[in-house]
Design a protein around this nucleic acid. Structure first.
Length: 808
DNA sequence: GAGTTTGAAACT
DNA sequence: CAGTTTCAAACTC
């Protein structure tokens, strides 16, 4: 059964591969070639998955892809080329290489162990699996030039190898089939859990599993990836969460060992340990972890399947498979990265190492500040995994992270705590949401959704931030390994350095409990990188943090909402103006600049990469992203170039512009392909979300993007940040507005989607308005599906307070 | 790295 | 709601 599905699933990807967007994405990430496989999954997962995942996916994907390639290479020792790579990678960075290898191996291993062993005749079976996967992705049977080309484009350095791989793969069509079988088997495993959940999926359950929906992002993506990717992926994705959480825990390892099912954990384990053995272990944890993930995955699978089926053709099937595999892997990778990133965020710099020692790193990292945070990331304990896994999605939330961190610290060390806090922090992932969102609930029931969104957004942002950081680090490494493009490497490293340097707060008097604190404002706990004094924004002071948050929210329900909102109006245009993106998005409150002319980061609008709007009270506005008076993006482009060159923006702006332009361009390219404007914009997003071209995904993506945007703003300085702003522009608006709507849900998406702020209070972007979110609608609809639990939660959870905002 | 500038956040 | 103060980021040197 799986096989057909796979093909079906794969097809969508193949489409994307051909699509300019796909190419673009590939170009973005050198590794992409590898990705090709997972793409389908990505999409599917994306649709369900949380935005964050989507966000990450782009970034992550590249890495993963690279990893994949490497893995494959690594796995395929038989081939000289591969061996070379391995060597190269190893030489470049032993740790990273090890990690990458592990990643690849993990999935591969699981697969191999499962599939290859039986099917593969050759001793190389191990390599064979990976190869098969890779090849499948690339087009094992069908030598699709496009894929190869893409890959080569993205990964010029690797290209040669890939090509060889491709050929090899082609020859190995059988192997691929085997891999499919394996995948099917894996799916079967995963599906079982999924099916169970799916069958049982009651909204209530979903709600109860709030975390799941959220978690889905990661978990779902994982699940999808697993299903689509052939099990191997799943394990990886799944493992990602589990690993992140679990890695720290030795217990997990034990559990994993005991369990044989999942490959997920294997991922982490593999990372920590080294490959082969991990594959076996993977299964164990999976069950627990997967369970939570399963539902999402199942849903995703279903969706994906349906989509894929519709689209898929036998021919495409292969390609799709490949692409899907790639996508899936990417997603998984992205997911992992997130986790890692979180961890990274906690230990940012340290985390780099962490990658190598995913498990150990998490635990080890706990340092003074960082430790707590890091731990948060780690939160999942093996035992908790289930619940945590469920929550993980939420966990993604910054708060969750923070809470999780606490929990992680406590939980990991003190499981009881976890249980105790469950309500708030439950699993790490959830806790964040719960603690933050629910705890904060003051905003409202209706708000809750918003909160969730917010959380998600924040989470995304954080993730992004972390990712950015991690990416920078990871990217630096991975890319370097993978791509080797010196420029990118440099950038990455630079960005990473910037991120690290820039990240986190420096509060001295606010105790990090006021909006002055960027960490607090972002819904994150302060971490190591922070140089704050007397910081109370730590998991240890969760109660205080939550209370403070509530207070602030009571004063201003939107206080923690993304500052930049993308107007729904904006969307409709998409075709047009990918470039205008900035204009479409607006700062929710507007700026009050008087001396900076809205050309410096002092200006929140500028910092957010959005143009000033009527709501702004700025004087002498020269915002390159759009002036209050009306000049907007079109001009912006010109102005930007000029201004950017001119002012301080030199650094940021110049990069900014470049990035934006590049993105815009990409977006433009994409736009045609993808229906939604969103897609066009967020380069990364598009690929992910749209890869499937599924509108829903876009919505999800949008959400994620928004969060990203959010973070990006904060992180602004870093190159990623620069990008983020753009994304943010696109997405930011969406998330808040959309989510709220969705959450409110009640708001029927279809109908009237109140495109704008769910709560009039919430975001009231004066500008936006409404409306037009048609483009978004698709996304919204998708969102609803993906996040059904939220809506239900909202009503259920608290009707009590609707936040002043909306709910209506 | 220290000091200054800036504008948001918080307070009155 | 307006004015003032506080705060920390952004920026400059």
């Amino acid at each position: 059964m799986d096989t057909p599905e796979k093909y079906q699933i794969a097809t969508p990807i193949s489409k994307y591969e051909d699509s300019p967007v796909f190419n673009y994405i590939n170009s973005l990430s050198p590794i992409k070639p590898v990705k090709s496989i997972p793409t389908d999954q990505t999409f599917s997962s994306l649709s369900f998955a949380s935005p964050s995942s989507v966000f990450t996916s782009p970034h992550i994907n590249p890495q993963r892809e690279s990893r994949f390639l490497r893995r494959h290479q690594f796995t395929d020792p038989s081939k000289p080329e591969f061996s070379r790579r391995d060597n190269d990678e190893n030489t470049s960075e032993g740790v990273l290489d090890a990690v990458h290898q592990l990643d690849y191996l993990d999935p591969g291993r699981s697969d191999v162990g499962i599939t290859i062993d039986p099917s593969n005749k050759d001793p190389k079976s191990d390599s064979g699996l990976p190869q098969s996967l890779k090849y499948d992705c690339t087009s094992p049977e069908d030598n699709r030039i496009p894929n190869d080309e893409i890959e080569t484009e993205t990964v010029p350095e690797v290209a040669g190898r890939p090509a060889s791989h491709v050929h090899f793969v082609q020859g190995v069509s059988k192997e691929r089939r085997q891999s499919f079988e394996i995948e099917t088997e894996l799916r079967g495993i995963c599906q079982i859990g999924e099916s169970e959940e799916a069958a049982g999926c009651d909204w209530g359950k979903l709600i109860s599993d709030d975390t799941d929906p959220l978690i889905f992002d990661s978990s779902i993506s994982k699940a999808h990836s697993e299903v689509q990717n052939h099990k191997t992926v799943d394990p990886g994705t799944y493992s990602f969460i589990a690993t992140v959480l679990q890695l720290p825990h030795d217990e997990i390892d034990d559990l994993q060992k005991s369990q044989s099912i999942g490959s997920v954990d294997s991922y982490e384990q593999c990372e920590t340990e080294e490959t082969v053995t991990k594959s076996r272990d993977v299964g164990e944890i999976k069950e627990t972890d997967q369970t939570p993930a399963v539902p999402s995955s199942t849903l995703l699978d279903k969706l994906v399947v349906s989509d894929s089926r519709a689209e898929v053709d036998d021919k495409k099937g292969k390609k799709c498979m490949q692409s899907s595999c790639k996508l899936g892997s990417q997603q998984q990778l992205s997911i992992r990265r997130r986790c890692l990133l979180y961890e990274m965020t906690g230990a940012h710099k340290k985390k780099l190492v962490y990658n190598s020692d995913s498990g150990s790193s998490a635990s080890s990292q706990s340092d003074g500040k960082g430790s707590s945070d890091e731990k948060q990331f780690m939160p999942f304990k093996p035992g908790n995994i289930h619940s945590s896994s469920m929550l993980p999605g939420i966990g993604l939330h910054l708060n969750a992270l923070a809470t999780t961190a606490e929990d992680g610290n406590k939980v990991v060390k003190h499981e009881p705590l976890a249980s105790e806090r469950k309500p708030m922090s439950m699993s790490r992932s959830i806790p964040s949401l719960n603690s933050m969102a629910l705890a904060q609930t003051p905003l409202n029931k209706s708000l809750t959704p918003n909160l969730l969104e917010m959380d998600l957004v924040r989470f995304d942002s954080e993730v992004q931030a972390t990712e950015d950081a991690s990416q920078t680090s990871d990217f630096g490494v991975s890319e370097e390994f993978n791509h080797g493009s010196p420029k990118r490497k440099r950038r990455r490293s630079e960005q990473a350095a910037e991120n690290e340097a820039c990240k986190r707060c420096n509060c001295k008097k606010s105790k990090c409990l006021k909006l002055y604190c960027e960490c607090f404002a972002a819904g994150l706990y302060c971490v190591e990188p922070c140089s704050c004094q007397d910081c109370f924004n730590k998991p240890v002071h969760e109660d205080t943090v939550l209370q403070t948050r509530k207070q602030i929210e009571s004063r201003n329900p939107l206080a923690f909402a993304p500052k930049v909102i993308r107007s729904s109006d904006y969307v409709p245009e998409f075709g047009d103006e990918s470039n205008k993106t900035p204009a479409s998005a607006r700062h929710k409150r507007g700026c009050n600049c008087k001396k900076s002319s809205c050309l410096k980061k002092y200006c929140e609008c500028f910092q957010g990469g959005v143009g000033c709007s009527i709501s702004c009270r700025c004087e002498g506005c020269k915002n390159t992203f759009g002036r209050k008076d009306g000049t907007e993006e079109a001009e912006l482009d010109e102005e930007e170039t000029e201004e950017t060159c001119d002012k301080n923006s030199l650094d940021t702006s110049s990069e900014y512009d470049v990035v934006l332009r590049g993105e815009e361009e990409h977006s433009d390219l994409v736009a045609p392909v993808t229906p939604s404007s969103e897609i066009s914009r967020p380069l990364v997003q598009l690929p992910f979300t749209f890869g499937g071209g599924k509108p829903p995904q876009s919505s999800l993506l949008s959400v994620g993007s928004s969060s990203q945007m959010y973070t990006s703003q904060k992180f602004g300085p870093s190159g990623f940040i620069c990008r983020l702003p753009k994304f943010e522009k696109h997405l930011e608006m969406i998330p808040e507005d959309e989510t709220p709507e969705i959450l409110q849900g009640d708001c029927t998406l279809a109908g009237g989607v109140k495109s704008t702020s769910p709560n009039s209070k919430r975001v009231s972007p004066p500008h936006h308005k409404i409306g037009s979110t048609r483009a978004w609608r698709s996304g919204r609809k998708l969102i609803l599906r993906s996040i059904p639990s939220f809506p239900s939660l909202n009503p259920c959870q608290e009707s009590s307070d609707r936040s002043p905002g909306k709910t209506q």
